[in-house]
């Protein structure tokens, strides 16, 4: 049943939020600490467990896949309700922060990849 997948997702989501809240309390704050990330980990482990015991059918899985696939449209809807008018008053912060982080990360990618031994390349040269 397709609802089983969606319900599994919902339970992981709620547990993650609850654990995140508890973690927040334990750390002395009122905010949620990594609830979404914890929920993602729970879902990964739940999937592995259910796969091993063979209790997850394809129809149930599609109840999760649908929501995973809908996340870009949801992000688009999220973009639609941001306070862009106010953000533009912030000036070039976004542009500079973005360009800066891309440059820094690019340098590190280049640096780490230059350390890769040539023999480790499994692909044949073109």
């Amino acid at each position: 049943m397709i609802i089983y997948g969606t319900a599994l997702l919902a339970v992981c989501h709620l547990l993650g939020i609850i654990i995140g809240d508890l973690l927040g309390r334990a750390l002395g704050m009122t905010t949620n600490v990594g609830g979404v990330g914890i929920a993602m980990l729970l879902l990964i482990f739940a999937r592995i467990y259910l796969h091993k015991s063979g209790r997850l059918c394809a129809t149930s899985e599609s109840g999760v896949h649908y929501w995973g696939a809908i996340y870009i449209p949801v992000v688009v809807a999220m973009a639609m309700q941001q306070n862009v008018v106010a953000a533009l008053k912030g000036g070039p912060v976004a542009l500079i922060a973005a360009v800066g982080s891309v440059l820094v990360c690019g340098l590190f990618v280049s640096f780490i990849n230059r350390m890769e031994p040539e023999t480790a390349a499994p692909e044949e040269p073109k």
Partner: peptide, 17 residues
């Protein structure tokens, strides 16, 4: 649709992949 609830729900779902 773009509120916290559905957004987090959809993001958690991507972990399934």
């Amino acid at each position: 649709m773009g509120g916290n609830m559905l957004r987090d729900f959809a993001i958690v779902a991507t972990a399934f992949e």
